[in-house]
């Protein structure tokens, strides 16, 4: 056996005699607590970012007003929009029928085909 191999074998045998450290009670729970704290901070960060962008947006559309004012206006606008949206299809259907009966006469080359301009 070469010197280096003998050294390696001796050291390996010696290190096997070392007791494995036993984590103190609650150590893994402390590591999980570290994860939970990081996760809570991360979520707080996400919500803080959302709140900040909402505030910035509300300042643009309604400067100086509390956040609930533009939020309520937006909700009201959505409700009105939804109401109009449900009433609108019937009117659109009527218009479509009218359009089918009288097809539009516009074509891209209409001016070329018009006889009065064919002079």
């Amino acid at each position: 056996m070469t010197g280096e191999n003998a050294d390696r074998d001796f050291v390996d045998r010696a290190l096997r005699q070392l007791p494995r450290p036993i984590p103190s009670p609650g150590f893994e729970a402390a590591l999980m607590a570290g994860y939970d704290a990081w996760n809570a901070e991360r979520n707080k960060g996400v919500w803080a970012a959302i709140r900040a962008s909402a505030r910035g947006f509300s300042e643009v559309i309604w400067p100086g007003a509390p956040l609930w004012v533009p939020a309520s206006a937006l909700a009201a606008a959505l409700l009105v929009g939804a109401g109009v949206g449900t009433a609108l299809p019937a009117a659109q259907a009527e218009q479509s029928a009218f359009s089918l009966e009288q097809p539009g006469s516009f074509t891209l080359f209409a001016s070329d085909l018009a006889p009065e301009e064919d002079l």
């Binding site: 010197g3 280096e4 050294d7 390696r8 001796f10 050291v11 010696a14």
Partner: peptide
């Protein structure tokens, strides 16, 4: 590794 093992031995 070689120096460490020699020294430890």
């Amino acid at each position: 590794l070689a120096r460490g093992r020699r020294s430890l031995k």
